[in-house]
């Protein structure tokens, strides 16, 4: 657990998810995916809808159970953890969802959502409330937003609050599942700036897995990129290099389609 500097913070080995539907062919949504996320790195995963990237990130976050393969968090296998053990995993790994408004309980305030992980880890309600305010400020919102309801804030503000919630427990890995796709481009830029600032502040103790369908965004934001196609990783490399010289025909077609 303490071996932060050497080795990947997250390692995925041969991860596979097969969906069986009655009366239909089985679909291999994720097919033997392996990769590593290194300390302080921002790793992008791109692919079209149906490429399996969302299933992959849901498996890593242990929201979906894989059919095969292993997930290692700082060298510790978390693939089959349940209950209390699984909850301890979430102190290291947090997630930002695509639809910010949907990711907050509509019947609870933003502050309540942000402080939930803290209260679950033994903080008093008052201390959690104070910390929520600080986190909101760190993410560029006034502390007073803790009292607001999810439907009272804009998409960009809600996504800032969602990032504040993800940061509350000081995780070392942030999973971003199309975290900026539902936002307007100027807001998207603001959110990326915020994530960039957080990366600079936290250095090697903070890694991002950035799932995205926009290859231009990945080029701008990520250190390394994986290209997913039909559940498999077909290409891996530095974004600039992949875009300049794609080796897989799918990647080439993808890049040629960008207007």
């Amino acid at each position: 657990m303490q071996d932060n500097n050497k080795g990947p913070v997250l390692e995925v080995r041969d991860l596979t998810k097969i969906y069986k539907r009655r009366g239909q062919d089985t679909v291999t949504a994720v097919d033997g995916v392996s990769f590593s996320l290194h300390p302080g790195e921002c790793l992008g995963i791109i692919g079209e809808s149906g490429s399996g990237k969302t299933t992959l990130v849901n498996m890593i976050a242990r929201l979906t159970d894989p059919d095969r393969g292993q997930i290692l968090l700082k060298g510790r296998e978390i693939t089959r953890l349940r209950g209390r053990d699984l909850r301890s995993v979430y102190a290291e790994m947090q997630m930002v969802f695509q639809q910010p408004a949907d990711s907050f309980d509509p019947r609870r305030t933003l502050g309540d959502g942000i402080g939930e992980s803290l209260r679950n880890n033994g903080w008093s309600a008052a201390a959690a409330r104070e910390e929520s305010g600080k986190l909101l400020e760190q993410c560029g919102l006034p502390a007073g937003f803790a009292e607001r309801w999810p439907h009272e804030v804009s998409g960009g503000q809600c996504q800032r609050a969602a990032i504040a919630r993800a940061l509350a427990i000081r995780p070392s890995i942030l999973l971003c599942d199309e975290a900026t796709s539902a936002l307007d481009v100027t807001i998207q830029q603001e959110i990326l700036d915020l994530l960039g600032t957080l990366r600079r502040q936290m250095g090697a103790g903070f890694s991002i897995l950035f799932i995205c369908h926009d290859i231009a965004l990945v080029q701008q934001f990520c250190d390394r990129v994986l290209v997913m196609y039909q559940g498999k990783i077909v290409e891996e490399g530095i974004p600039d290099a992949v875009i300049r010289k794609p080796s897989h025909p799918y990647t080439r077609r993808l890049i040629d389609s960008i207007l």
């Binding site: 481009v185 100027t186 830029q189 300049r244």
Partner: peptide, 14 residues
């Protein structure tokens, strides 16, 4: 200007 700056553009050039 702000809008154009925010649009992620693919840099293909070497």
């Amino acid at each position: 200007k702000q809008l154009m700056a925010a649009v992620p553009r693919l840099k293909r050039a070497t």
